[in-house]
Design a protein around this nucleic acid. Sequence first.
DNA 1: GTCTATATCAAGATAGAC
DNA 2: GTCTATCTTGATATAGAC
Lengths: 186, 186
Amino acid sequence: MENRKTQILKLALDLIREKGYVAFSYDDISKQLGLTKATIHYHFEKKEDLALAITDMMQQSLQGFLISMSNTVSIPVEEKIKQLILKQFEIAGNGICPLSSLQADYESLPEAVQLRVEKLSQFELKCWNDILREAQKEGIVHNAVDIESLAYAVISCIKGGMQYKRVLKRDILPQIEEQVCRLIKS
Amino acid sequence: MENRKTQILKLALDLIREKGYVAFSYDDISKQLGLTKATIHYHFEKKEDLALAITDMMQQSLQGFLISMSNTVSIPVEEKIKQLILKQFEIAGNGICPLSSLQADYESLPEAVQLRVEKLSQFELKCWNDILREAQKEGIVHNAVDIESLAYAVISCIKGGMQYKRVLKRDILPQIEEQVCRLIKS
DNA sequence: GTCTATATCAAGATAGAC
DNA sequence: GTCTATCTTGATATAGAC
């Protein structure tokens, strides 16, 4: 069943959001799906393979979002920015952003996964760079502002915010969003 | 030797910065210090005890910094802000901020440690609240800005920035700092 | 305080039956 | 494709000698 594979994949993504790459186990998955560990190993021989599939999934998810946004004719940049912030919040679900989670576990990841995490981080950054550059052209971002620096700050703020949110058990995301918008528009 | 205890403590803090609570082991410490695991268990019976001692250390480190700053007569608020940002960057060393690391591992932490992480997060936030409120009184922060929201954003931006820094292998901290200052002053 | 030795357990992974 | 059974390794933790 090709469905089983994606079922495992989605649960594994959840677990990474929740506990991270190091802490989650094939046993977690097997119990939650009512399978044996051996079955999971059949679909993803090594934990590394599962991690790689997850990073692929994440990349495609972001790419798909960008395409669907660029296909919708003429969304104002401000709306695009809000949607991208919302998308990042949604991706975290009940946990933290899965990319942040992988970043935190970076030193324990297999080399191939480290590379994907690096590429994904760069890709995310590029998305923000593009959208912010567009915003600058339209005069939403002040001309004196260095876009690359702004992109670093925006993404860092969003990701960091989700980590605090979980620990503080307070929904600080609206406040983070407000400040991110303030940072962009000032 | 009371020294041995702090020696273990400091190395454990390093390891948390580098790999996180779940990923680091008593074996890592024993190898790097030339001890046996049993010796470490003598000083810190359980891993949880070691983690608790580390959170205490972190709390004291921040507290000490604040006291030393308030003792130095009449530092301008702007200088205080810069120093606090610098302090947060320094604390991360080669890895990420140890608090961010513990936040990422939150769901895997023993309950007592979770509580400390929550308290530490709140304490850090309170520090930023205090300093930003002071800055608002002096007109550095605009009066319309909600200080609590600003504090969330500032700290999130700093912490998130350090996670990206390690993965991107680029020193983006100056750029993060620049944007944090822009956020505060606008 | 530090050691050797060992118990216990969970994790990633494989072999082979169905 | 999924199972049972098993191997191997590494981790937390303890007992007891020095």
